[in-house]
Structures are given as C-alpha cells and as structure tokens.
Computed example of a mutant assay.
Amino acid sequence: MFKSLSLVTLISIASFSAIAAPVVSGNASPESKVCAIAAEQGLSAARAYGAKHGVFVSRFSKTLECNGEDIRSFAKQAQAESANTEAKVKLVAKNSTVATELCLKAAKEGLSSLSKLRHQTRNLKCNDLPVKQFIKNINNTAI
C-alpha cells in the first residue's frame, strides 16, 4: 500500500530581502563596513565591530547614517526585510487513489481525522513512511 505525495517547495518573497539584494559596501571605510554589518547581522554586531575600529554607534542618538538613513532604522529595516522571506510547502497528490487522499487528509487535518478509518490506515504509508512519521515531518514544515 505504497502511495506517494510530492512536497513541492515554493519560495515566496514578500519584499526585497538580504538574499535577493545583498548588501555591498560602497568603499573600504570602517563606516561602510559597519553599515553592511548592521544590515546583515543587526545593530549589536555593528556596534561591536565599530567599537573595534573607532566607529561608535549609539543606541539612542543619531551617530552614523547608512544610505542617508540613521543606522538604527537602517538595521531594523534590513532585519525586517530578511524576516519577510519564508519557505512554504505545498502538498501535491501524485495520483488519486484512496490511500493518497487519506495521506492528504491526515497532513491537512491531522492524524485524528483518520480515527474513523482505522482499518484502512493501519498499514498506510505516505511517501514511503508510516503515516504517523509522515505527519510529524509535515508538522515541522510550514504548509
């Protein structure tokens, strides 16, 4: 009773992200490097790097501008944009058999949705995994 489902990974990007538009330093100055670090790793990492190279970044007052914007808001915006990138998984049935439909139902509604069909699901395998293991794997992925 080996029936299969395909997991198709779709990447949805809500806005520009660090992956889509990597941050590049305009020059080799420590200030440019601090701005790049702020965009990629956050304000704390930029402050630590800056302190080692004589560029002091305040958490409370405007001390450095990155692309014409205060470093604090620049870092916050870059972190928010990279957080908007998320991977989603879509379940696709390879065939229309009863076992495949049961696997889809279990993945979408949970294992308890199959409780009335115990005799059909006792040896059910989804993607060559026992249905319980398959559901655990699905639950660790955003659908």
Results as ranks from 00 to 15, higher is better:
Glu86Lys: 15
Ile135Ala: 04
Lys94Tyr: 10
Ala80Gln: 09
Gln77Val: 09
Lys125Gly: 01
Ser32Glu: 13
Ala20Tyr: 11
Ser6Lys: 11
Leu102Ala: 07
Phe134Ile: 01
Ser73Tyr: 05
Ser61Ile: 14
Asn123Cys: 05
Val131Phe: 03
Ile19Arg: 15
Lys88Leu: 09
Val24Trp: 03
Lys33Ser: 06
Arg72Trp: 01
Lys132Glu: 15
Leu104Phe: 05
Lys94Ser: 12
Val57Met: 08
Arg122Asp: 12
Tyr49Asn: 07
Val98Thr: 13
Asn123Phe: 06
Ser58Tyr: 10
Glu69Cys: 08
Cys103Trp: 01
Glu40Asp: 08
Ala14Ile: 13
Ala14Phe: 08
Val34Ser: 05
Phe16His: 11
Ile71Gly: 00
Asp70Ser: 08
Lys90Leu: 15
Asn67Gln: 12
Gly54Phe: 02
Lys116Val: 15
Ser32Phe: 01
Thr9Arg: 14
Pro22Glu: 09
Ala83Gly: 07
Ile37Asp: 00
Asn95Gly: 12
Val34Lys: 00
Arg59Gln: 11
Ala78Lys: 03
Thr9Tyr: 12
Glu40Thr: 04
Leu7Asp: 04
Lys52Ile: 14
Arg59Lys: 13
Asn67Tyr: 06
Gln41Pro: 01
Phe16Ala: 10
Ser58Ala: 10
Ile71Lys: 00
Asn84Arg: 13
Ser4Ile: 11
Ser82Met: 09
Gly26Pro: 06
Gln77Asn: 10
Asn84Glu: 15
Phe56Asn: 07
Cys103Tyr: 02
Lys90Gly: 05
Arg118Trp: 02
Gln41Arg: 13
Ala18His: 07
Val23Leu: 04
Leu104Trp: 01
Leu117Met: 12
Asn67Asp: 10
Ala78Thr: 01
Gly54Val: 05
Cys66Glu: 00
Thr100Ala: 11
Lys116Arg: 13
Leu64Trp: 01
Ser17Gln: 10
Ala14Glu: 11
